[in-house]
Every structure is written in structure tokens, then in C-alpha cells.
């Protein structure tokens, strides 16, 4: 994909508000994600990250403000959420035209390293493999915006690193705008172009990650982010 052509943003969010009862979980939140841009979203537990993803995906209601997106939106959740009664191929092609769906699903499974497993059942997959199928299911519809809500949280450390490489590669190829919710600061730094920190219902901080972040600057960024998340690394280090 050419970088010179200016594409329309994957999503533009203005003054978004979402409340449960009287309590505003999302309060006057502004966000713009460009096509092909990889954005990571950090924030303390319970600050409303999942709520934001669900609102963007149309799974939760909007109480104010606007969401503009021009294309398809796909989601990968923390759990794979594959239909246990559908073959992997049928899972990936869910909701697509019967004929083209098959072919595209076949290719997508190949892309996530599961070629030849088209007719297998989800129960025969490991956690990492199942999450790869969920990724294939999201990417096969060429979404303009890809929402990832802690998709690697349930995986072991090694599998997670492999998934990082895979996701980076797939996103580079398909060029969706990505919003990755994560608790892992290092994951955010290694994957994202931009890191946002959510607090009090809106985006409280934003950091650009330079492509060639040298070691020293990456650890500085890491410290900054941890401080944003009110993790006091110095007391932790002095204890250990």
C-alpha cells in the first residue's frame, strides 16, 4: 500500500460519552485512528477500555458524541469466541458469501499458519491456535478498523511473542487501523505507532513510538507509561 496516498481515517470519535446509570465510564473522549496506524490503549483495570471497544464495535450504546468510520469494523476478544460447531473454515468465513468466503477463509487460515486445518473443529486447537483463527476471522473481511481487546492476555509468554510477530506482519499487509487494548506496556511499545493512556473516561496521554526507538529511549518511554498507570517501579525494584 502506498504511503503517499492520504486515506480517510479508520475512525474518528468526537466527544464520546457512555454511562452506566449516572456514572460516566467514557466521558468526552476524542480519538482518531488513521488507516494502517497501530494504536495501543493502556489504562488501569476498570477504566473503560473494554467499554470503548464495545461501543466502537456497535455492541454497546452511545450516550453522546459521534463515531465516524467509513468501513468494516472487526473485533478480536480476549477469548477466541469460535463457534465450536463450525469447522475452522466456516468460523473464519462466518457471515460471508458462501463461495468467496471459502476461498478467502482458506487463504486467511494459511496466513495465520493453519493451512490444512480448514475442516478441523475448534476444540482440537491450542489456545494460541484458536486465537490465530479468531485473528483470521477478523482480517478476512479486510476491516478498516481492527479492535483487539487483550487478545493475547490468556496466552503463555512464548506464544504471545509469536503472536506479536504475526499480528505485526498481518497488520502491515492488510493495513487496517488498529486499536489494541493491553495491560502489557512492553507489548504496546513493541507493536504500536502510538500509545494512548485512558483515565477518567478519556484519553489522558498520548505517546508516539519512534520506529527506531533506541534502547535508552524505549526504557524511558516504558517508565513514563508505567507512571501513567500509577505503577511505582522504583519501590518495586528496591524491594526485589
Amino acid at each position: 500500500m502506498s504511503n503517499t496516498v492520504k486515506q480517510s481515517p479508520a475512525v474518528i470519535v468526537r466527544h464520546l460519552r457512555r454511562q452506566y446509570g449516572k456514572r460516566a465510564i467514557i466521558d468526552d473522549l476524542d480519538l482518531q485512528i488513521e488507516s494502517g496506524e497501530f494504536v495501543a490503549l493502556l489504562g488501569e483495570s476498570g477504566c473503560g477500555k473494554t467499554t470503548l471497544v464495545r461501543v466502537l464495535a456497535g455492541l454497546d450504546e452511545v450516550d453522546g458524541g459521534s463515531i465516524d468510520s467509513t468501513g468494516e469494523i472487526a473485533v478480536v476478544f480476549q477469548e477466541h469466541r469460535l463457534m465450536p460447531w463450525l469447522s475452522l473454515e466456516a468460523n473464519v468465513a462466518l457471515g460471508m458469501n458462501e463461495k468467496t468466503g471459502r476461498l478467502l477463509a482458506h487463504n486467511a487460515l494459511g496466513e495465520v499458519g493453519l493451512a490444512g486445518r480448514e475442516n478441523d473443529w475448534p476444540r482440537n486447537l491450542s489456545g494460541g491456535q484458536a486465537q490465530r483463527v479468531a485473528l483470521a476471522r477478523a482480517l478476512v473481511r479486510e476491516p478498516k478498523l481492527l479492535l483487539l481487546d487483550e487478545p493475547f492476555a490468556a496466552l503463555d509468554a512464548l506464544t504471545r511473542i509469536k503472536m506479536h510477530v504475526l499480528v505485526k506482519d498481518l497488520v502491515a499487509r492488510h493495513q487496517p487501523g488498529v486499536l489494541l487494548v493491553t495491560h502489557d506496556v512492553d507489548e504496546a511499545i513493541s507493536l504500536a505507532d502510538r500509545i494512548l493512556v485512558m483515565r477518567n473516561g478519556h484519553l489522558a496521554a498520548s505517546y508516539f513510538v519512534a520506529a527506531e526507538t533506541e534502547h535508552g529511549r524505549a526504557s524511558l518511554l516504558r517508565e513514563n507509561l508505567l507512571q501513567e498507570l500509577s505503577v511505582d517501579i522504583y519501590t518495586n525494584e528496591s524491594r526485589t
Binding site: A57, G58, L59, I73, A74, V75, R81, M83, L94, G95, R137, R141
Partner: peptide
């Protein structure tokens, strides 16, 4: 929910 986001 998956059905909803995949537009079934």
C-alpha cells in the same frame, strides 16, 4: 455478539 460484529 460475534454474530453481531460479523454482520450475520
Amino acid at each position: 455478539e460475534v454474530a453481531k460484529v460479523t454482520g450475520l
